[in-house]
Structure formats: structure tokens, C-alpha cells
Computed example of a mutant assay.
Amino acid sequence: MGYNIAEFVAVTSRSLPGVELVANDGTFELAPPGYAAPSANSRIDVIWVRSRFAEFGDASDAPEFGITKGAASPTPAKPSLPAGALELAVAEVKATDTTTQTVIITQSVRYTAMAGGSVPLRNRMEQDAWAPADGSLAHRIDNGIHLVRVGGAWAERVPAAHQGRRGSAAQPAGIEIPTDTVQLPQGVIVKTGTLVAGTTVSFGNEYFPVVVFDTPFPNKCLSVTANPLTGDPITKATGAIGFDTVAANRFRALIPESSNPWVRGFTYIAVGY
């Protein structure tokens, strides 16, 4: 039994405080001698890669692929990895497996990006597990939402284009509409933009996604004014557009006492300094 590892480029950390670039330029067959399914129950195995350095006591300077086997159990647990190893995938091996073609394999390697880039996240679980510094960017592979880290939490990067009607499962297409910033005399700054998005309902109000400014106001956002849009696929807001959050780097608009989600839109003017 064994696993085929496809080509990839990864960043690992074998010896702090440095990092290493590992490149696999073709399919690698990982089939350790004696690797087989457990005699009973099932176990969780982890496939990994790590850099090696002879000067630190390793057998060679070549990168190493490996499998760390968990303990067989009716409720198997994931084993710990060797120091410096980067997890590539997780395999659930059952006693009835005679080949890895029937093993349940989950791709679990974490993605990364160059400094300032947007890190791909497969799902909400990976989003919740990553807590980087404010200003970090990410995007969800499963739903296309673009994210920014603000105040120790994730917020949607908007404006984003949506399609759909009331009651539909509208998803963002990840299209960002650029905003404009105008520097006025005496340090007053005006920011303008447009948001088209599917709303959500909570606490008896209809909420838009959070709008995060491309560049925060240096000190404070004094006010935000929103004017509703209309036209396919937008349903025009008939009530007043209010705000529950106005900060130097973001705001969130809402329609009070509205109990149905729609695709809405508005243009805004934000004034601050």
C-alpha cells in the first residue's frame, strides 16, 4: 500500500527561525515497507513532507516524505507530526482496506501566499483555524468570498457582485468594485464606493456585508451616507438605510425592521480625517 504525491511547491520550517522552500517536480510514490491496514478497527495516518539538514544531525540534506500512523481504534485519533513536518493529507485506513484506492483521503495541506497576498482557505473550518494579524487577506475556495482580518476577526471584503433573488442562495462572485478617495483641504477625506450584495436577516433587521475601506481613515470616519440603487438584479430598499458600525476602516449598513433577505445595492459617501 502506498500514496502518490503530486507535484507542488511548499514552504516548511525545519529549523527556527528560518523557512525552506520544498519543490516536488513530479509524482512521488510513497510506499513504506510493511505499510498495511490495521488488523481491526481503523486508524488515522498523516502524510507529510519536511526539509532536512545534515548540519543539524539529519541523515541528508534531501527533503523527506513520510507517513505517521495513528493508533487503531473504534474512534481513531490523529497522530502528532515530527518536528518541522508539513501536513499534506490525512488518510483514514480501515481494517478492510487492502489497497489505498479504498482509503478515505482528505487533502489537508494549508495554503500560503507571498507577503500581502490573499491566502486560499478551503472552508469555514480553515478560516476559523487561522488567526493572522489585522490586514491579512484570504479568500474562501468553497464559496468565493474574499476576506480581510479586521479587529481580530474576519470580515468580507466588499463591494462584491451578487446574483439572485429573494430567498435564493446568492453567493458573491468575488468582483471588487474600486473605491475613490479625494483629499480635501484641511485634512478632510472623502471616500466613495458602491455595494451590491445579498443581505442577511438578524434581530429583525436586514444587514449588508461589512464594507472595508481599501485605506482606512488616518484618525476617524465622521459620517457615512448611503443612497439605494435599483435595477436588475437589485431590489431597491424602500426604508431608510442605517448603520450599526462606523469605524475608521469599515462600516456596516442595515435596513431596520426588515425581515426578508434580498439582493440590495447602494452608493456611499464616507467623510473623515
Rank of each mutant, 00 (worst) to 15 (best):
I44R: 05
G164P: 03
K236P: 11
P79N: 01
F266Y: 14
V109K: 11
P132A: 09
T102C: 02
A129R: 08
Q186P: 00
E206Y: 13
F8E: 00
P32F: 05
D128R: 07
Q101C: 00
P82E: 00
G26V: 11
Y273S: 06
D232R: 07
A113F: 12
G152A: 02
W154Y: 03
A62F: 15
P178C: 04
E7W: 08
T12K: 10
G187C: 01
Q127P: 01
V212K: 04
V212A: 06
Q171P: 00
I241P: 03
F8M: 12
A113L: 14
I67C: 00
G204N: 11
G204R: 09
M114V: 14
A173C: 06
T225I: 15
T181S: 03
P256S: 10
A40M: 02
A10Q: 14
G231P: 10
I255G: 01
S42V: 01
N227W: 10
F203S: 12
V90G: 01
P159N: 05
N205M: 05
M1R: 04
V11T: 08
T225N: 14
L147V: 05
T68S: 04
F28L: 09
T235D: 15
P63E: 09
V271N: 08
A40V: 06
W262N: 12
P120V: 13
A85C: 05
T199F: 12
I67F: 01
V196N: 12
G117M: 11
G144C: 02
G116R: 05
S73V: 06
F213Y: 14
W130T: 01
D214G: 13
A40S: 11
E126V: 07
G70D: 04
I175F: 07
D232E: 05
E206R: 14
D58A: 09
V211Y: 08
S60I: 06
K69W: 01
A40G: 02
L147D: 04
Y273I: 05
A37H: 00
V49Q: 00
Q107I: 07
D97M: 12
G26L: 11
H139G: 08
P178D: 05
A89S: 08
T27I: 15
I47T: 07
V148A: 03
G187P: 11
V224Q: 05
E29L: 06
V49L: 00
R157E: 00
L254P: 02
A72C: 05
Y273P: 02
F208D: 11
A85R: 03
G18F: 13
D142H: 12
N41F: 10
T96S: 13
A129Q: 07
I189K: 07
N249T: 11
L81E: 01
R50K: 15
N227G: 10
Y3T: 01
A6H: 09
T99S: 15
A113H: 10
F56L: 15
T238G: 03
D134C: 09
D97R: 11
P120Q: 12
D128P: 00
S42P: 03
F28W: 14
F28G: 00
V109N: 06
G167F: 15
Y268I: 02
G152S: 00
I269L: 08
L137K: 11
E7G: 13
V211E: 10
K69F: 02
